[in-house]
Design a protein around this nucleic acid. Sequence first.
DNA 1: TATTAATCGAGACGGTACGTCGCGTCTTGCC
DNA 2: GGCAAGACGCGACGTACCGTCTCGATTAATA
Lengths: 204, 204, 204, 204
Amino acid sequence: MKENASADGGRRAPNPKRRSARAERAILDAASELIVEVGFARMTMEAIAARARVGKQTIYRWWPSKSAVVLDVFTHLTGEKAGQPLPDTGDVATDLKTVLRATVDEFTTPAMDRTARAFTAEIQHDTELAVQIGERLVSPGTEVYKERLRSAVDAGQVRADADLELAVELLTGPFQKRWLLRTAPLTHTYAEDLVDMVMCALRP
Amino acid sequence: MKENASADGGRRAPNPKRRSARAERAILDAASELIVEVGFARMTMEAIAARARVGKQTIYRWWPSKSAVVLDVFTHLTGEKAGQPLPDTGDVATDLKTVLRATVDEFTTPAMDRTARAFTAEIQHDTELAVQIGERLVSPGTEVYKERLRSAVDAGQVRADADLELAVELLTGPFQKRWLLRTAPLTHTYAEDLVDMVMCALRP
Amino acid sequence: MKENASADGGRRAPNPKRRSARAERAILDAASELIVEVGFARMTMEAIAARARVGKQTIYRWWPSKSAVVLDVFTHLTGEKAGQPLPDTGDVATDLKTVLRATVDEFTTPAMDRTARAFTAEIQHDTELAVQIGERLVSPGTEVYKERLRSAVDAGQVRADADLELAVELLTGPFQKRWLLRTAPLTHTYAEDLVDMVMCALRP
Amino acid sequence: MKENASADGGRRAPNPKRRSARAERAILDAASELIVEVGFARMTMEAIAARARVGKQTIYRWWPSKSAVVLDVFTHLTGEKAGQPLPDTGDVATDLKTVLRATVDEFTTPAMDRTARAFTAEIQHDTELAVQIGERLVSPGTEVYKERLRSAVDAGQVRADADLELAVELLTGPFQKRWLLRTAPLTHTYAEDLVDMVMCALRP
DNA sequence: TATTAATCGAGACGGTACGTCGCGTCTTGCC
DNA sequence: GGCAAGACGCGACGTACCGTCTCGATTAATA
């Protein structure tokens, strides 16, 4: 039970009820713009504060690091469709193609591209952030795929003994690799070919 | 009117013939150690210079950035087996498992893990470096896989109409994703399961 | 379209009201000590900052150069007696001797000697500083001499038609030359002989 | 008899007979130009070497420091008239005025002005140089004045009991002070007034 | 006249200090 | 008490020169 506020490093917990909504929005907007304009690495806390016309302390009061700010930006970007289940028309191949094509479109926009890259880069040396990303974005993302595949198993379109965890990796891993290493462009055709190939491995 | 073309101003290219082998080795060694000890992000040019007992200018003379130094470290790490063809015992599944198990072992060592992560992070906002990495490491790495798969096609173990480029991605993409996002540990069993699953998709 | 006037780029003037008195004192003290210990040329901004336990930026925020810092040190050294009028016992020769003897004593202390030398050196290639020195130290210093000589004219001890500007130079120029070029030691006797000689030229 | 060349610090004395006249001239010319163009402080050994199209070692082989190079430049500038006796028309006041007017002209040229300032500055923290300057320039310079004054004593134009050392200081000190501190411009009129005033003090 | 060792131009080297940038913390009024 | 503003101590940046140390390529005094 922490009661001595100044004993634990002088870090008094701020009162969220008094938080300025205006400042929060301005900070997230500024960060969002800057990450697209200059990228994560060249974006500085100082620049965020300046563009948001906000004191630096106001940022540090509510977020522990630059990554944390951008995590919030990212969450807002992808937030709405986070837990959304995948479409289920009855044909798993069609549905997966629909989803992957949409993902191609998403990762082709500069905002998403740069922000996602920034994260993938950042979690390589920020374990804390990696855990958060894993829990808030990766796991839920994987789960909706697994859910759709389970439904496909029930429909007899996927082998019952298939390792679904691995199956999801087979769908998303190549996609991510191609995007990260820029080995080849992400296209709708690619999304379809990928699903076709993976379905070969999953069909009963 | 004597024109002092070389008197001041711009970056005259240094003469590689005069390069100090001693300094180069010391710098690469220092960088190699530091990347393991503190990680790429916390490793500074100043620290490399200090540990290598070298002037900072000597680093900047030969490498444009920290990334470039580490690229050389990395190249030396993986260099020897760069173009090495994959084993060919006649059974493609066995051979791929052998290779992927070895890769698991490799990416489990701190030196490789940290250096590779540093790179994957860095090439997200350093396009120049991305190109170099692509040409010097990724492409050759992919090529040896494709070569082995071509041999498997000839042996009738892989469908003749399979997209080998995609096939390689199917093997390495999931692996890379699991490693990068740390969604699950890399084990020999995983390597084997992955090969088995992919072979389902590739068999005639 | 929001214009980020203050976001980046140029030198925004710092607000003197927020200036840290503690830092200012520490910097001047450190500079004062260092100039005596190692001399102006070998004194570095880095050393001042380190000794004052101050960030380099804090020095550069308030002073444009090393010279400017030392100018402040010097001003504080001589500051108190800057505008002080010369003694007036009724006998101008006696009074000038008193003053010049005191000046000999002053320029014989290491602190004054080294600081004053540093300045005389520095104003040779720092015109800005030269102007400041001229206005803040040299002119006021000359003026008090002229004032005393005017009083001597009134008392009939100095010719009414004497060029007092030149008279002051006659008193201080030889003194300064001997000190600067170290042609001979500065002594009380020298001060007295100098006054005697100059008085020959000034008496009615 | 020094025979073990490498024992005394590895500094083999260079053989002046093999010295390249071309290099020496080029170095002195380059230094001479640079001191006028950028001033002593901003002139670097590197720039001298570059402009003279000479290796840095060639400079360091023959001169121990930047000051030493400029000392040679200066010596060449003033060299020819170094020990030259002052004119002696029979009237000491006239002769002194002639000389001081010439000195005014000399110190009004940029080359002389900047070089002389550089020296006066430099000898404030380079004792070695100060001694050399004293012996090679200041003392001889003073001596010719004293010689002329001695002649004036013989001619009955100057008091026999006058301290000639001090008399020379009275002539040159004010001049130097005005020049160094730029308190007022150096003019022919000033030179004449100065001589007149000093003669008041020296006449029998 | 040929030899040969020192000087030459060039510039890489280990260093020190520069002046700037951005960090994360601290301080000062204002609302 | 949160806020905008921004000064602070600090650490690293990338650059400029320092004075020393190789490198061939002249080059000039001897053999």
